[in-house]
Amino acid sequence: MGSVLSILRYEYKMQITRIPTWGVLLTSLFFSLLDNFPSGGNLHRLEFLTDPAYLIYRAMSLDGLLLAFGCMILLSNRFPVDQKTGVKALIMAGPTTKEQYIWGKMLGGLGYTATLFSVFLAANALIYILAAPFQISAARLSAALVKGMILCALPVSVFVGFVSVNLPALMDVRLFYAIAVVLLMVNASTPGTSEAMPFYCVTSGDLSKLIWQHPRWPFGSAGSIQANLLFLIGGGLLSWLLLLGKKRFWRYE
Protein backbone atom coordinates (compact mmCIF):
# COMPACT_ATOMS: atom_id res chain seq x y z
CA MET A 1 0.00 0.00 0.00
CA GLY A 2 2.89 2.32 0.81
CA SER A 3 4.26 1.95 -2.70
CA VAL A 4 0.87 2.76 -4.25
CA LEU A 5 0.54 5.89 -2.12
CA SER A 6 4.11 6.99 -2.94
CA ILE A 7 3.52 6.60 -6.68
CA LEU A 8 0.09 8.24 -6.48
CA ARG A 9 1.45 11.18 -4.51
CA TYR A 10 4.31 11.99 -6.86
CA GLU A 11 2.39 11.25 -10.06
CA TYR A 12 -0.28 13.67 -8.90
CA LYS A 13 2.29 16.26 -7.90
CA MET A 14 4.16 16.06 -11.21
CA GLN A 15 1.02 16.32 -13.28
CA ILE A 16 -0.81 19.01 -11.32
CA THR A 17 2.22 21.34 -11.40
CA ARG A 18 2.71 21.09 -15.15
CA ILE A 19 2.06 24.31 -17.03
CA PRO A 20 0.08 22.57 -19.83
CA THR A 21 -2.32 21.30 -17.15
CA TRP A 22 -3.34 24.83 -16.32
CA GLY A 23 -3.37 25.73 -20.00
CA VAL A 24 -5.90 22.98 -20.68
CA LEU A 25 -7.98 23.96 -17.67
CA LEU A 26 -8.04 27.67 -18.55
CA THR A 27 -8.85 26.93 -22.20
CA SER A 28 -11.78 24.71 -21.21
CA LEU A 29 -12.96 27.33 -18.73
CA PHE A 30 -12.71 30.03 -21.38
CA PHE A 31 -14.89 28.14 -23.82
CA SER A 32 -17.28 27.23 -21.05
CA LEU A 33 -17.65 30.89 -20.07
CA LEU A 34 -18.17 31.89 -23.69
CA ASP A 35 -21.04 29.44 -23.76
CA ASN A 36 -22.48 29.76 -20.25
CA PHE A 37 -21.58 33.18 -18.84
CA PRO A 38 -24.86 34.75 -17.66
CA SER A 39 -24.71 37.62 -20.14
CA GLY A 40 -27.80 39.04 -21.78
CA GLY A 41 -27.05 37.23 -25.01
CA ASN A 42 -26.51 33.87 -23.39
CA LEU A 43 -29.55 34.27 -21.14
CA HIS A 44 -31.62 35.00 -24.22
CA ARG A 45 -30.14 32.04 -26.11
CA LEU A 46 -30.27 29.50 -23.31
CA GLU A 47 -33.75 29.25 -21.88
CA PHE A 48 -32.71 27.52 -18.65
CA LEU A 49 -29.50 29.36 -17.83
CA THR A 50 -31.16 30.93 -14.79
CA ASP A 51 -31.23 27.44 -13.26
CA PRO A 52 -27.83 26.74 -11.59
CA ALA A 53 -28.25 23.01 -12.14
CA TYR A 54 -28.51 23.66 -15.87
CA LEU A 55 -25.23 25.59 -15.77
CA ILE A 56 -23.40 22.68 -14.14
CA TYR A 57 -25.03 20.18 -16.50
CA ARG A 58 -24.09 22.21 -19.56
CA ALA A 59 -20.53 22.95 -18.42
CA MET A 60 -19.96 19.28 -17.64
CA SER A 61 -21.57 17.73 -20.67
CA LEU A 62 -20.43 20.12 -23.40
CA ASP A 63 -17.33 22.04 -22.37
CA GLY A 64 -16.15 19.28 -20.06
CA LEU A 65 -15.42 17.21 -23.18
CA LEU A 66 -12.56 19.56 -24.05
CA LEU A 67 -11.14 19.18 -20.56
CA ALA A 68 -11.48 15.40 -20.74
CA PHE A 69 -9.67 15.28 -24.06
CA GLY A 70 -6.90 17.55 -22.76
CA CYS A 71 -6.41 15.31 -19.73
CA MET A 72 -6.23 12.24 -21.97
CA ILE A 73 -3.39 13.75 -23.94
CA LEU A 74 -1.51 15.00 -20.88
CA LEU A 75 -1.77 11.66 -19.06
CA SER A 76 -0.70 9.56 -22.03
CA ASN A 77 3.01 9.71 -21.27
CA ARG A 78 2.99 8.35 -17.71
CA PHE A 79 4.33 4.88 -18.49
CA PRO A 80 6.37 5.79 -21.56
CA VAL A 81 8.21 8.51 -19.64
CA ASP A 82 9.30 6.00 -17.01
CA GLN A 83 10.71 3.78 -19.72
CA LYS A 84 12.47 6.72 -21.34
CA THR A 85 13.98 8.17 -18.16
CA GLY A 86 15.14 4.82 -16.76
CA VAL A 87 12.89 5.18 -13.72
CA LYS A 88 11.02 1.99 -14.58
CA ALA A 89 14.22 -0.05 -14.26
CA LEU A 90 14.78 1.53 -10.84
CA ILE A 91 11.30 0.68 -9.69
CA MET A 92 11.54 -2.90 -11.00
CA ALA A 93 14.78 -3.39 -9.04
CA GLY A 94 12.95 -2.40 -5.87
CA PRO A 95 10.24 -4.04 -3.78
CA THR A 96 7.30 -2.52 -5.73
CA THR A 97 5.09 -5.08 -7.44
CA LYS A 98 3.59 -4.72 -10.91
CA GLU A 99 0.08 -4.30 -9.44
CA GLN A 100 1.25 -1.57 -7.05
CA TYR A 101 3.05 0.23 -9.86
CA ILE A 102 0.03 0.22 -12.17
CA TRP A 103 -2.47 1.17 -9.46
CA GLY A 104 -0.27 4.00 -8.25
CA LYS A 105 -0.15 5.44 -11.76
CA MET A 106 -3.86 4.92 -12.35
CA LEU A 107 -4.91 6.50 -9.07
CA GLY A 108 -2.55 9.39 -9.73
CA GLY A 109 -4.29 9.89 -13.08
CA LEU A 110 -7.71 9.61 -11.46
CA GLY A 111 -6.86 12.13 -8.75
CA TYR A 112 -5.45 14.52 -11.30
CA THR A 113 -8.48 14.36 -13.60
CA ALA A 114 -10.95 14.58 -10.72
CA THR A 115 -9.13 17.65 -9.37
CA LEU A 116 -9.28 19.40 -12.71
CA PHE A 117 -12.97 18.65 -13.18
CA SER A 118 -13.73 19.81 -9.65
CA VAL A 119 -11.85 23.08 -10.19
CA PHE A 120 -13.53 23.48 -13.59
CA LEU A 121 -17.03 23.05 -12.23
CA ALA A 122 -16.35 25.10 -9.10
CA ALA A 123 -14.87 27.96 -11.17
CA ASN A 124 -17.92 27.92 -13.45
CA ALA A 125 -20.18 28.02 -10.38
CA LEU A 126 -18.25 30.83 -8.72
CA ILE A 127 -18.21 33.06 -11.80
CA TYR A 128 -21.90 32.32 -12.31
CA ILE A 129 -22.76 33.38 -8.74
CA LEU A 130 -20.67 36.55 -8.99
CA ALA A 131 -21.90 37.62 -12.41
CA ALA A 132 -25.55 36.55 -12.52
CA PRO A 133 -27.99 39.47 -12.65
CA PHE A 134 -30.60 37.43 -10.79
CA GLN A 135 -31.05 35.66 -7.49
CA ILE A 136 -29.44 32.24 -7.26
CA SER A 137 -30.40 29.48 -4.85
CA ALA A 138 -27.15 28.55 -3.12
CA ALA A 139 -28.63 25.24 -2.04
CA ARG A 140 -29.63 24.33 -5.58
CA LEU A 141 -26.22 25.33 -6.92
CA SER A 142 -24.38 23.39 -4.21
CA ALA A 143 -26.53 20.33 -4.81
CA ALA A 144 -25.89 20.52 -8.56
CA LEU A 145 -22.17 20.97 -7.96
CA VAL A 146 -21.99 17.94 -5.69
CA LYS A 147 -24.05 15.86 -8.13
CA GLY A 148 -21.86 17.01 -10.97
CA MET A 149 -18.67 16.10 -9.17
CA ILE A 150 -19.74 12.77 -7.71
CA LEU A 151 -22.22 11.38 -10.21
CA CYS A 152 -20.62 12.62 -13.39
CA ALA A 153 -17.09 13.96 -13.01
CA LEU A 154 -15.91 11.04 -10.89
CA PRO A 155 -16.85 8.27 -13.37
CA VAL A 156 -15.45 10.42 -16.20
CA SER A 157 -12.23 10.78 -14.20
CA VAL A 158 -12.04 7.00 -13.76
CA PHE A 159 -12.36 6.54 -17.51
CA VAL A 160 -9.96 9.29 -18.49
CA GLY A 161 -7.47 8.65 -15.68
CA PHE A 162 -7.28 4.88 -16.16
CA VAL A 163 -7.54 4.62 -19.94
CA SER A 164 -5.10 7.43 -20.67
CA VAL A 165 -2.49 6.00 -18.34
CA ASN A 166 -2.84 2.33 -19.35
CA LEU A 167 -3.48 2.27 -23.10
CA PRO A 168 -0.26 4.03 -24.15
CA ALA A 169 1.65 1.26 -22.34
CA LEU A 170 -0.07 -1.27 -24.60
CA MET A 171 0.37 0.47 -27.94
CA ASP A 172 2.31 3.13 -29.80
CA VAL A 173 1.34 6.45 -28.22
CA ARG A 174 0.48 7.85 -31.65
CA LEU A 175 -2.20 5.19 -32.02
CA PHE A 176 -3.55 6.24 -28.65
CA TYR A 177 -3.67 9.86 -29.81
CA ALA A 178 -5.61 8.76 -32.90
CA ILE A 179 -8.09 6.83 -30.72
CA ALA A 180 -8.50 9.85 -28.45
CA VAL A 181 -9.16 12.14 -31.41
CA VAL A 182 -11.74 9.73 -32.85
CA LEU A 183 -13.43 9.50 -29.46
CA LEU A 184 -13.47 13.29 -29.20
CA MET A 185 -14.90 13.71 -32.70
CA VAL A 186 -17.59 11.08 -32.17
CA ASN A 187 -18.57 12.65 -28.84
CA ALA A 188 -18.52 16.20 -30.18
CA SER A 189 -20.68 15.30 -33.17
CA THR A 190 -23.29 13.43 -31.12
CA PRO A 191 -26.01 15.97 -30.44
CA GLY A 192 -27.70 16.12 -27.08
CA THR A 193 -31.26 14.85 -26.97
CA SER A 194 -34.01 14.28 -24.46
CA GLU A 195 -33.96 10.64 -25.54
CA ALA A 196 -31.30 8.22 -24.33
CA MET A 197 -27.80 9.14 -25.37
CA PRO A 198 -25.30 6.56 -26.69
CA PHE A 199 -23.46 4.81 -23.87
CA TYR A 200 -20.05 5.84 -25.27
CA CYS A 201 -20.58 9.54 -24.59
CA VAL A 202 -17.90 10.45 -22.11
CA THR A 203 -19.15 13.71 -20.58
CA SER A 204 -22.53 14.05 -22.28
CA GLY A 205 -23.80 10.57 -21.50
CA ASP A 206 -26.99 10.05 -19.54
CA LEU A 207 -25.12 10.26 -16.23
CA SER A 208 -25.05 14.01 -16.78
CA LYS A 209 -28.86 14.00 -16.84
CA LEU A 210 -28.75 13.22 -13.13
CA ILE A 211 -27.54 16.83 -12.64
CA TRP A 212 -30.41 18.49 -14.51
CA GLN A 213 -33.50 17.30 -16.34
CA HIS A 214 -35.53 19.16 -18.94
CA PRO A 215 -38.79 20.24 -17.27
CA ARG A 216 -40.87 19.42 -20.38
CA TRP A 217 -39.17 16.09 -21.14
CA PRO A 218 -37.99 14.60 -17.88
CA PHE A 219 -35.54 11.80 -18.61
CA GLY A 220 -36.19 8.32 -17.26
CA SER A 221 -33.93 5.59 -18.65
CA ALA A 222 -32.15 3.90 -15.77
CA GLY A 223 -30.73 1.36 -18.21
CA SER A 224 -29.09 4.05 -20.29
CA ILE A 225 -27.59 5.67 -17.20
CA GLN A 226 -26.23 2.30 -16.08
CA ALA A 227 -24.83 1.65 -19.55
CA ASN A 228 -23.02 4.98 -19.50
CA LEU A 229 -21.66 4.29 -16.01
CA LEU A 230 -20.58 0.80 -17.07
CA PHE A 231 -18.82 2.19 -20.12
CA LEU A 232 -16.89 4.74 -18.11
CA ILE A 233 -15.90 2.63 -15.12
CA GLY A 234 -15.81 -0.62 -17.04
CA GLY A 235 -13.67 0.93 -19.74
CA GLY A 236 -11.21 2.13 -17.14
CA LEU A 237 -11.03 -1.25 -15.44
CA LEU A 238 -10.75 -3.07 -18.77
CA SER A 239 -7.69 -1.00 -19.65
CA TRP A 240 -6.20 -2.04 -16.30
CA LEU A 241 -6.86 -5.73 -16.98
CA LEU A 242 -5.34 -5.49 -20.44
CA LEU A 243 -2.16 -3.97 -19.03
CA LEU A 244 -2.02 -6.43 -16.18
CA GLY A 245 -2.13 -9.25 -18.68
CA LYS A 246 0.56 -7.83 -20.92
CA LYS A 247 3.66 -9.97 -20.99
CA ARG A 248 7.04 -8.28 -20.92
CA PHE A 249 5.65 -5.18 -19.23
CA TRP A 250 7.33 -5.96 -15.94
CA ARG A 251 10.08 -8.22 -14.60
CA TYR A 252 10.22 -11.78 -15.83
CA GLU A 253 7.89 -13.05 -13.04
Partner: peptide, 14 residues
Protein backbone atom coordinates in the same frame (compact mmCIF):
# COMPACT_ATOMS: atom_id res chain seq x y z
CA UNK B 1 20.17 -4.09 -3.38
CA UNK B 2 20.47 -0.51 -4.55
CA UNK B 3 20.62 0.01 -8.29
CA UNK B 4 21.94 2.84 -10.42
CA UNK B 5 21.08 2.02 -14.06
CA UNK B 6 23.18 3.10 -16.97
CA UNK B 7 20.60 5.48 -18.43
CA UNK B 8 18.85 7.36 -15.65
CA UNK B 9 17.39 10.71 -16.60
CA UNK B 10 14.87 10.89 -13.71
CA UNK B 11 11.93 13.29 -13.64
CA UNK B 12 13.05 16.82 -14.56
CA UNK B 13 10.12 18.51 -12.79
CA UNK B 14 10.82 16.98 -9.37
Amino acid sequence: IGYLPQELAMYPSL
